[in-house]
Write a protein that binds this DNA or RNA. Structure first.
Lengths: 138, 138
DNA sequence: CAGCATCCTATATGATACTG
DNA sequence: CAGTATCATATAGGATGCTG
């Protein structure tokens, strides 16, 4: 299937399903980190991904493992050691994710700017409506 | 910035911010539909995107407009006509989204398969644990 | 170290009714 | 047609404490 073949775009189900999984708050960041670093332990990932809670990192990794995107290797040692890495399928996902990452880095500024303009306009409209209401009241 | 420049990957904020907006349930589908069809009215979008509620389509379009990705053109007619299309910024977003769309179409089958295998293994482990508990009890 | 279990809250989403 | 307003709910996500 080529990039110009839009026939699949008519059927949203596959895209929706994938987005429901990788579109959460942490999955893309986990895949990104594993793509960069290759193999990472649980707490290494937790340190790299700023703000993720232990619970959410666990859930995210389980989901990615379930979807065949991440491998989980347990070493029966004391203290326990668990290593995560991308599967071959996970590595292919790196490509579109990386594209999105680069787009974000390039265009985040423009988005922030657009938001500021939009919000300023909305605030002005709200103020205008207040004046109209005050005028209508008397 | 090149695709191989991973320095931006260390700073998750831009990516997180973009993902928080386009990572919701409908934004990517809206952008995809507008990218395919060029200009669409509200109810045309609603018909194309299966399952979206009026409320969520409105909210999604407002957010995309606020971020400078979608333009909203009102024609002061009766009945009212409102047309949506991608901005230039929105069109550039089409590229990484299209890549993700194609990846989904190609690899959704593998994900479904991986889930089935994972779930079967989990079920087996659960059954095994039940037996162990039964053994311990009796 | 790498988690699991529990409780709690915020938010996203949906359903429904109404409107210029 | 293209919304807005309100209510209801499911779920994502966070905080905390405990464990092998």
């Amino acid at each position: 299937m080529s990039l110009t073949d839009t026939s699949q775009h008519s059927n949203c189900s596959a895209m929706s399903d994938v987005l429901n999984r990788i579109g959460d708050k942490w999955s893309v960041l986990v895949v990104g980190m594993l793509g960069q670093n290759g193999v990472l332990r649980f707490n290494e990932l937790k340190r790299l991904i700023n703000g993720v809670s232990q619970r959410m990192l666990t859930l995210t990794l389980r989901n990615l493992e379930r979807d065949g995107l991440v491998t989980r290797t347990i070493y029966p040692e004391v203290p326990p050691r668990v290593e995560y890495s991308l599967t071959e399928l996970g590595k292919t996902l790196q490509v579109p994710i990386s594209a999105l990452w680069d787009w974000s880095a390039e265009n985040h500024g423009a988005i922030v700017e657009a938001r500021a303009i939009y919000d300023a306009r909305e605030t002005a409209v709200a103020a205008d409506n207040s004046r109209k209401i005050a005028y209508a009241r008397g």
